[in-house]
C-alpha cells in the first residue's frame, strides 16, 4: 500500500474505533430511530425501543401503559437527516424531531424523543426522557 493510502487507512481506522465502529453503529442507530419514529409501527414495538429509564418515566408521567400513551406524544415522523454516534450514545436528527439513543445489551434504545433545541450550547427540551 502506498504511504499516503496507508496514512489514510490508519486515520480511517482510528476514526472508526473512536466512533465505536462508526458505519455499523450508524446503520443500527438509524434503523431503530426510523422504526421508533414510524407511527405505523405497533405501539408495543415502539415501547420496546425505549431505554428502561425512559420507559419508566413515561409510564409514571402518563399514569397509564406505554402502549396507550405513546401515540399521543409529539414524537416526529420525519426521515433522518443526520446520525451521530459517539461511544455509548447517539443522536438522530429527523426532519421534524431529534432523538437521543443509548447502547444497551439488547441493542440501541431511545433515551429521549420529542426534543426541541433551546438556546445554543443548551440541552434539548425533550418531552420524552428518563428521570
Amino acid at each position: 500500500m502506498p504511504p499516503r493510502r496507508r496514512g489514510l487507512a490508519t486515520a480511517a481506522a482510528a476514526a472508526l474505533l473512536l466512533s465505536g465502529c462508526g458505519g455499523l453503529d450508524s446503520d443500527a442507530v438509524e434503523k431503530v430511530a426510523t422504526t421508533f419514529a414510524d407511527h405505523g409501527t405497533d405501539a408495543a414495538t415502539r415501547c420496546q425501543l425505549l431505554a428502561e429509564n425512559t420507559l419508566t418515566s413515561l409510564v409514571e408521567d402518563a399514569g397509564t401503559a406505554c402502549e396507550e400513551a405513546i401515540g399521543d406524544l409529539p414524537i416526529g415522523t420525519g426521515t433522518p437527516t443526520a446520525v451521530e454516534v459517539w461511544g455509548e450514545e447517539a443522536q438522530v436528527k429527523l426532519t421534524d424531531d431529534t432523538l437521543f439513543l443509548t447502547r444497551t445489551s439488547s441493542g440501541w434504545k431511545v433515551m429521549a424523543a420529542a426534543c426541541r433545541p433551546k438556546a445554543e450550547e443548551q440541552p434539548y427540551d425533550c418531552q420524552v426522557e428518563g428521570s
Binding site: W86, E88, E89, Q91, P123, Y124
Partner: peptide, 10 residues
C-alpha cells in the same frame, strides 16, 4: 461528545 449526547446536547 459522548457526554454531550448523554446530557441531550449537540
Amino acid at each position: 461528545n459522548d457526554e454531550q449526547l448523554m446530557s441531550l446536547e449537540d
